[in-house]
């Protein structure tokens, strides 16, 4: 079973990287860009029978390791049939 985990910065947490990229996009002429937030994208391939249980496990993994709950949120997306 495959899952995708999107790790993003919590609202309100400063994203220096996103800010720098935004400024650079403005310089390149994309003045309509209002905000850029950078994040991480993690693909996990795991053995699991029960998708709901797998989702629980993936959320645990995210809490413990993949995301830093101090500053990051995450979203788990199960990818069926791949």
């Amino acid at each position: 079973m495959k899952a995708r985990i999107y790790v993003t910065l919590k609202t309100g947490v400063l994203d220096p990287q996103g800010e720098a990229v935004k400024k650079s996009l403005h310089v390149l002429g994309y003045g309509n860009v209002e905000e850029v937030r950078m994040g991480k994208f993690v693909e996990v391939d795991l053995q699991a029978g029960d998708p709901e249980k797998a989702r629980q496990e993936l959320m645990e993994m995210s809490d413990k390791l993949l995301a830093n709950p101090v500053i990051e949120n995450y979203r788990v997306e199960m990818v069926e049939g791949e």
């Binding site: 220096p16 990287q17 720098a20 990229v21 650079s24 950078m38």
Partner: peptide, 8 residues
């Protein structure tokens, strides 16, 4: 150095 913070 770290031009533009080496961001991205």
């Amino acid at each position: 150095g770290f031009s533009y913070g080496d961001y991205l």
